[in-house]
Design a protein around this nucleic acid. Structure first.
Length: 262
DNA sequence: ATGGCTGGTAGAACCAGA
């Protein structure tokens, strides 16, 4: 029986934290790692660090300063692609088809700015539109598909430390949760994080750099792995690697890992 | 309950994250 271990991690600058990525790859040995917020143009991507660890297959889509995504893999790709949604080429997607036929899509959904009102904050509108565009994109999928990444939405009450307070905070507002829910239901995506760690258990993937929030465990579940219905049953193990949040000069997000058997 | 850190681009204070 074949087994594939896939991981996703918002790294918040892959150049600054290339060694941390290497530490994670060595310690947890995923076959594939999807990164978000690489913050580096493709020509400057530190690929050799990961090639040296056996991750010789790399699909990257980055730009200067902001956003940026990458897929590092020990398994060969049949094909790779990068999508631009909403008329903006802002490096929020990269995908790869693995030899097993698994379609892997890595997303960095817009954060959405400060004010949850698209009439005064265009970034919030862009976020909702991006998720709407994902919904239409998913209509065409007809293969076993895994979507991973930083969705920048904590959908369930128990995905934040204080549901009532955060209803007004971008990442947990009702309209974001509704929009993400429409996307989820349209394809029947299975939220693997909650398959393996059911509500209402604590299951955070992000903690602010601000010490007060971190020390009080005021986290949110923003990073996700969603499987299409035909793939979800193959998921056999799942975890968040909270340890990395305590590493020196860490990302504010932690890796999420799922193992599949076929 | 809170944005009071952090990174990148600059080459000093911004913007952005969420």
């Amino acid at each position: 029986m074949a087994s594939i271990k896939l991981a996703t991690w918002n790294i918040n600058s892959v150049r600054l934290r290339a060694d941390l990525v290497g530490q994670f790859l060595t310690a947890y040995s995923p076959d594939v790692l999807c990164l978000q917020e690489t913050k580096v143009p493709d020509a400057l991507f530190p690929g050799e660090v990961f090639t040296g660890l056996g991750y010789v297959h790399q699909a990257i889509n980055g730009q200067k300063g902001y956003h940026g995504v990458a897929i590092l893999s020990r398994l060969p790709f049949r094909k790779t692609a990068a999508l631009s949604f909403c008329g903006k080429d802002d490096t929020r997607h990269v995908s790869a088809v693995l030899e097993a036929g698994l379609q892997l899509h890595n997303f960095y959904v817009p954060a959405g700015g400060d004010t949850p009102d698209r009439s005064v904050n265009p970034k919030f509108g862009q976020k909702l539109d991006f998720i709407g565009r994902m919904t239409r994109w998913a209509e065409k999928l007809d293969r076993p598909t895994l979507i991973v990444g930083d969705f920048n939405v904590a959908p369930l009450d128990c995905d934040v430390y204080d549901h009532k307070a955060l209803l007004k905070v971008v990442s947990h507002t009702p309209v974001e949760i509704e929009t993400l829910g429409l996307f989820k239901d349209a394809h029947g995506w299975v939220d693997l994080g909650r398959e393996f760690i059911p509500a209402p258990d604590r299951n955070y993937t992000w903690w602010s750099y601000r010490a007060f929030w971190r020390d009080k465990d005021q986290g949110r579940r923003l990073d996700h792995m969603w499987a299409s219905p035909d793939l979800a049953g193959h998921a056999k193990g799942h975890r968040c690697v909270e340890e990395t949040r305590r590493w020196e000069q860490p990302s504010d997000h932690v890796p999420v890992v799922t193992e599949f058997t076929f």
